[in-house]
Computed example of a mutant assay.
Amino acid sequence: MPSFLTWALFRCQSAQEIVRYPNDDRRTWFWAHYYADGEGVLTATSTPDATRELVASGRICAIGKYVGLGFTPWDGITGPTHRQYLTSATFAADMATFSYLNLNYLFYSCTNLASVNGLGNLSGVRSMRYTFSSCAFTTIDFRAFNPSTLTDLFYTFSGCSHLTTIYANATWALPSSGITGSQCFYSCSSLVGGNGTTWANSKTAYTHFRIDTASTPGYVTAA
C-alpha cells in the first residue's frame, strides 16, 4: 500500500508547463460538493445546491492521476477529515460532458459509503485505482457505464467486504488489451456473480470484472 502523507497529479500539465505556457492550460476540472446529510455530489458545476447545508466543496482535476488522499472535500490532508461521514455519492448527469476521467482514490477508505449513484453518467473513464477501496456498499450499479476505455483497476474494490453484487448491462466487456489491475477484488469476501460464482482469494484480478457465466466465471451480474 502506498504512503498517503502526500498526493500528486500525473497526466495533468506540470506547474512548470503552466508557468511557461499560461494560455495553454489543458487541464479539465469537475467539482465535489459535500453536504451535511452525508452525500457527496460530483458535478461539472462549481455552484453547490443552495437549498442544502454545505460542509465543503472543492474542484478535482478530471485528467489527474492522484496518488494519495487530500484532494476531495471529504478528505483533506489539512483541516477536518470527513470521509467517515460520507454515506452516499452521486455522479450528476452533467458529468457526461467529460470525455476523459481518472477516478483514483476518489472514495478510498470512506468506510460508511453505502450507496453510489450515477455511474452510468460517466464516459471515458481510464483509471479507477483504489476508487472504492474499503467502502461499505453491498451493491453497485454499472449499468450504462462504458468500460471500453478502462486502463487501470488496481485494488479498485479492495476491502469491500460487504459488497455482494455488481450490476452491469449484458453487453459489459473490458478492453481486450491495455488494461491492468491486480487485486481488483482483494478481500471482497461476500461477492457473488450472477451465475453463482463466489469470491475466491485466488481470483482477485481485474479479469473477473466480467459477466458471470458458466464458461466465463466472473463477479458481475447482468441486469
Rank of each mutant, 00 (worst) to 15 (best):
M1W: 08
P2D: 06
F4H: 12
F4P: 08
L9F: 04
Q13D: 09
S14I: 09
E17Y: 11
I18C: 11
V19S: 15
D24F: 02
D25T: 13
R27Q: 14
R27S: 15
T28H: 01
W29A: 04
W31R: 08
H33S: 00
A36P: 08
G40T: 05
V41A: 00
V41E: 00
S46V: 10
T47R: 07
T47Q: 07
T47V: 13
T51Y: 00
R52N: 09
S57T: 10
I60V: 07
C61P: 04
A62S: 04
K65L: 15
Y66S: 00
Y66W: 06
V67A: 12
V67Q: 10
G70E: 04
G70S: 07
T72P: 02
T72A: 01
W74V: 08
W74S: 03
D75M: 11
G76Q: 04
T78P: 05
T78I: 14
T81M: 13
H82W: 12
R83Y: 04
Q84G: 07
Q84S: 14
T87W: 02
S88F: 11
S88A: 15
A89C: 13
A89M: 14
T90Y: 07
A93T: 15
A93K: 15
A93Y: 03
D94N: 06
M95C: 03
Y100I: 14
Y105L: 11
Y105E: 01
F107C: 09
N112L: 12
A114R: 15
A114K: 14
N117F: 07
G118E: 05
L122E: 01
G124R: 11
V125R: 05
F132R: 06
S133E: 15
C135R: 04
A136P: 12
F137H: 06
T138P: 04
T139E: 10
D141L: 12
F142P: 09
F142V: 10
F142G: 05
A144C: 07
A144E: 10
A144S: 13
N146I: 11
P147L: 05
S148E: 07
L153A: 04
F154H: 11
G159C: 06
L163K: 03
T165L: 04
N169C: 09
A170L: 08
A170M: 08
A173T: 14
A173M: 09
L174Y: 05
P175L: 10
S176K: 14
S177V: 12
G178Q: 02
G181F: 01
Q183K: 12
Q183T: 13
C188D: 04
S190G: 14
V192Q: 06
G193D: 00
G193T: 01
G193Q: 01
G196H: 09
T198F: 08
W199A: 00
K203T: 03
T204N: 07
Y206A: 08
H208N: 05
F209D: 01
I211Y: 02
T216P: 02
P217F: 07
Y219W: 06
Y219S: 00
A223M: 03
A223N: 13
